[in-house]
Amino acid sequence: MANRDNHFQSAFGSYTLECYPLEKNTQLRAWNAADELALSHLKEQLDTSTELSQRLNDTSSKILTINDHNGALSIPIASSLAELATPGKVHCWADSTLAKSALQHNASINTIAEAVSPTFIASTSPLDGPYDVVLLQTPKTLSLLEYQLRELRPHLHSNSLVIACGMVKHLHHSYTERFEQLIGPTHTSLAKKKARLILPTFDPSLDLPEKPPVTQYSLEQWPITLTNLSNVFAQNKLDIGTRFFLSHLGAEQQHISTIFDLGCGNGALGIAASQLNKEAKIHFYDVSYLAVSSAQHSCADNNIENETRFHAMDCLSEENAKADLILCNPPFHQSNTVGTQIAFRMFSQAKQHLTEQGELRIVGNRHLNYHIMLKKLFQHVSVLDSNKKFVVYLAKD
């Protein structure tokens, strides 16, 4: 029997949805009121527009969801259209490997046949339109929204229905402006349960503003140039936690031959480590496809001679190799909730991937008290440095 908190009653029926990664006693829910509102609006359009209904009944029609992190938009639509048995009809485009895993998991527990399950597309991969319907959960960053709208535009046609949704507290006026600038005339719905819709009409003749340049900045003391694609943490300058961490990487130690940059972002830690150890193999890991791509760009721009590998994955969940040194500046936000669950998973998996002499070095905000969870996992935990905001820890067995 489904947990009450996992029971999603949508305009297209009832479904069981679970947040991914699966965690006991999680406070997070796999959907929000914005998902409910977007699906209700789509259902209303289907009920009142014979033309739209007929188009979606055509086997060549396609539906796209964007930033659908747990399948709350994709699963109900795919299920309701299952009788058409059209593979690839519903596409799910997102920047997180967790979104891919969540989509597969939730399609499975809702017994959606593999042949009609939503097709996942990574954010760095091209879309496969044109799309008749697009449902978009607005992302946390304006830079990611702009990237997505620019990539989406060539895959729309004059009758495409675009429905964007989000919680009111996160929908700034600049979001509506981006839709007007990049898609066409836009209006918003009334708020319901603290959620709102953004409803643009595609204008194929729209004169688009100039595409913003890719963000790059330099660390003069190394020297290193870093590339930040959209959705990468510390979009316009290196975050102060990483900057504080750079003096305590320990990559120059003689026994270190393999280094993991876990949660790599733009690759700052791994690239800095490569400057200290020219012989080490450097592996970069991040849940974000755009982050991994940023790290690849950064390595290329800095002519890194070390052997490098890049992995889009959930922590180290698909990795079999071990490292002599793992560097990590863990995130402490999941969705819009502050917590240490992600950090604990990163530390736990790091422990399983260290060599006998291996060590984990991390930086974290002082108030997060990472030493408590580190001491539950490792025999030896020490503070390498600290200031009023951050602490650098070394953990090993």
Rank of each mutant, 00 (worst) to 15 (best):
D5S: 12
H7N: 12
Q9D: 07
Q9A: 10
A11L: 07
A11M: 08
F12V: 05
S14G: 06
L17Y: 10
E23A: 14
E23H: 11
R29P: 00
R29N: 06
A30N: 01
W31D: 03
E36P: 02
L39F: 01
L42M: 11
L42S: 08
Q45L: 12
L46K: 09
L46H: 10
T48M: 07
T48I: 03
T50I: 11
L52Y: 03
N57S: 12
D58I: 09
D58H: 14
S60N: 13
S61E: 03
K62A: 08
N70W: 11
G71L: 14
P76Q: 14
I77E: 09
L81D: 09
L81A: 09
P87I: 04
K89E: 10
V90F: 06
W93N: 00
L98D: 15
A99W: 00
K100D: 12
I109W: 04
I109Q: 12
N110G: 04
T111K: 14
E114A: 14
T124I: 15
S125W: 01
V133D: 03
L136V: 12
T138R: 11
P139T: 11
P139K: 13
P139Y: 10
S143G: 07
L145N: 08
L145D: 09
E146D: 14
L152D: 00
H155A: 07
V162D: 01
G166A: 11
V168W: 03
K169M: 06
K169D: 11
H170C: 02
H170W: 10
E180P: 02
Q181T: 06
Q181L: 14
P185W: 09
T186F: 11
T188F: 07
T188Q: 15
R196K: 13
L199E: 06
S205F: 08
L206P: 00
E210K: 11
P213L: 10
V214K: 13
Q216H: 09
S218R: 15
L219C: 13
E220Y: 09
E220V: 13
Q221S: 14
P223I: 11
I224V: 10
S230M: 02
V232Q: 04
A234R: 04
A234F: 12
L238F: 05
T242P: 05
Q254T: 15
Q254A: 15
I256S: 03
T258I: 05
F260H: 11
G263R: 00
G270Q: 07
A273C: 07
S274T: 13
Q275P: 00
Q275I: 06
N277H: 08
K278P: 07
A280M: 04
K281F: 04
H283D: 14
Y285R: 06
S288K: 08
L290N: 15
S294F: 03
H297K: 13
H297T: 07
S298A: 08
C299E: 08
A300L: 14
I304E: 06
E307G: 05
M313Q: 13
L316K: 00
S317F: 05
E319V: 10
E319P: 01
K322D: 13
D324F: 00
D324T: 00
P330L: 10
H333D: 09
Q341A: 15
Q341K: 14
F344C: 09
M346K: 01
S348G: 01
H353I: 03
E356L: 14
L360P: 00
R361M: 04
I362S: 10
H367C: 04
L368C: 08
N369V: 05
N369R: 15
M373Y: 03
F378I: 05
F378G: 01
S382P: 01
S382C: 10
K388M: 07
K388G: 07
